[in-house]
């Protein structure tokens, strides 16, 4: 057993809180939990921004993207948050309608597969949803949802009611198949091993051999390749195109440090922030850093077409898509 991290860990956790009276402004950023974790982008982003903002960054993790929005909506105008980071385009319509967010007033150059003009929210990363499989176990790879449904492959997916990737899949099928979505879901129902509460459970089931494929991102194989030297995982390219997840941040109108918050949003699309993203969040950076993407990303599947509902379309179609999903899978 490695003693040093253990002892260091116990000591630092038991040490009394060193309360330092600081004059520097505090920038409070609400985000999803995996962003703030020791293995997420949070620690590096905090360190990078603090070196030149003369401020203290405080991250607060609140579950996932949907829980994050729920938290901000509950807190309303007196939320202590200055910046909310981690919503995706399926959630921004509700966030915008709350009136809690202020325009960012910026027009940075971005490397997104779609054009971007949202006045309230700025993207910091993005990815394509995809089914990830093991190349050594699955040889015949379906080329679209209908082929997947016709195959006897077993998949693990996430529940759209509790998971943002789950919601992304719902909208993917809807965007690709329109009113035929219910039909596709019915055909898929016998391929679905189970529907998990979140991404982690589904991905864990896949890695433990419970499912042949899992709904994740085209960038997921990069983790296995770069961090584990394992090239057996791959994403299935689907001919109907892949739905995008664009992750965004916005400043709250009631922020007590609007200047610092705006500077953070500007900082977000610079190299210092963007270069952290690929190997911590395992997504594509919104603006490719000058050094390019890490080695290994060039092996990833690039979908032929990017699918995305606008924020308003996503909000309007969500309930209908959920109902048809529930009906199709309850039979």
């Amino acid at each position: 057993m490695r003693l040093s991290p253990m002892i260091a860990g116990f000591l630092s956790a038991l040490a009394p809180f060193a309360a330092l009276a600081e004059e520097k402004p505090v920038l409070t950023i609400y985000t999803y939990d995996s962003f703030v974790s020791d293995w997420g982008p949070g620690p590096a982003v905090k360190a990078a921004f603090e070196t030149y903002c003369a401020c203290t960054v405080e991250f607060v993790g609140a579950g996932d993207g949907a829980a994050l929005l729920a938290r901000v909506l509950i807190e309303g105008a007196d939320s202590p948050a200055d910046v909310v980071l981690g919503l995706d385009t399926n959630l921004t319509a509700e966030a915008a309608a709350s009136g809690l967010f202020a325009p960012h007033g910026q027009n940075p150059e971005l490397d997104l597969p779609v054009s971007w003009s949202d006045p309230l929210f700025l993207p910091y990363d993005w990815g394509y949803f995809a089914f990830v499989y093991d190349r050594t176990k699955t040889v015949s790879v379906p080329a679209d949802f209908e082929a997947l449904a016709a195959s006897d492959l077993k998949i693990a997916i996430q529940d759209p009611r509790s998971s943002t990737p789950g919601l992304g899949l719902l909208l993917w099928v809807r965007k690709a198949y329109g009113d035929r979505a219910a039909e596709v879901w019915s055909a898929l129902s016998d391929n679905i091993v189970t529907v998990t509460p979140g991404w982690s459970e589904a991905y864990g089931l896949f890695l433990n051999g419970e499912a042949d494929a899992v709904l994740s991102y085209t960038t997921s194989p990069a983790y296995h390749l770069i961090a584990e030297g394992d090239d057996t995982k791959a994403a299935m390219p689907f001919t109907e195109g892949h739905y995008l997840q664009v992750e965004v941040a916005g400043r709250l109108a009631a922020s007590d440090t609007p200047d610092v918050a705006d500077r953070f949003l500007a900082f977000m699309t610079t190299d210092a922030f963007q270069s952290v993203i690929p190997e911590t969040n395992w997504m594509y950076p919104a603006k490719t850093p000058a050094g390019g993407l890490p080695m290994g990303f060039e092996t990833l599947v690039i979908p032929s077409e990017a699918l995305l509902f606008t924020a308003d379309e996503a909000r309007d179609i969500r309930e209908k898509a959920l109902a048809e999903w529930q009906t199709a899978l309850s039979q």
Binding site: D33, S34, V36, S37, W39, G40, E58, Y203, S220, Y223
Partner: peptide
């Protein structure tokens, strides 16, 4: 949660969320 107060079960979920 904030970054400095994770309990062991939360840390476990975070590891899972980070592919680990």
């Amino acid at each position: 949660s904030d970054p400095d107060h994770a309990t062991l079960p939360l840390q476990l979920y975070r590891l899972m969320g980070a592919y680990r």
